[in-house]
């Protein structure tokens, strides 16, 4: 197999892959940016406003107010059981999209206080 062809295939594949990944990767956004693009999926990182966390276990939903890193607060609605360390998480990454004015989250990724502590995923 000629080495030039080999390198050429690898290089083309590399470029294709980088574009594929970049285009379909989910971006991080502030609350404002996510609100401005309803229907598109984002990661919004922030902290839970103390006192706003409500889990309705029977219905399997979690609602809370998320204050993002620019200080804006949005109302997050998550369908599923509250992940184990949600109440004590230092940072919450709510993956979801704005629909009809509420931020509907499909996944909550948590940053826990201890240094080497794995995140618990709520998917």
């Amino acid at each position: 197999m000629k080495i030039g062809l080999f390198i050429g295939i690898i290089a083309t594949g590399l470029v294709l892959m980088m574009t594929a990944f970049s285009n379909s990767a989910t971006p991080y956004a502030s609350a404002k940016e996510a609100k401005a693009a309803p229907g598109k999926k984002f990661h919004v990182v922030g902290t839970i406003v103390p006192g706003s966390l409500d889990s309705n276990v029977r219905e399997g939903t979690v609602n809370f107010l998320l204050k993002d890193e620019l200080g804006e607060t949005i109302s997050v609605h998550y369908k599923g059981h509250a992940p184990a360390n949600l109440a004590t998480a230092t940072k919450v990454n709510a993956v979801g999209k704005f629909e009809n004015g509420t931020y509907k989250s499909e996944k909550l990724l948590l940053k826990c206080p201890t240094k080497y502590e794995p995140e618990k995923k709520g998917a």
Binding site: M17, A25, P27, Y28
Partner: peptide, 14 residues
């Protein structure tokens, strides 16, 4: 640029 995350479904697609 803003940070992005590659999720499981994207890896599967590629």
């Amino acid at each position: 640029l803003e940070a992005k995350v590659v999720e499981e479904s994207v890896y599967h697609n590629v």
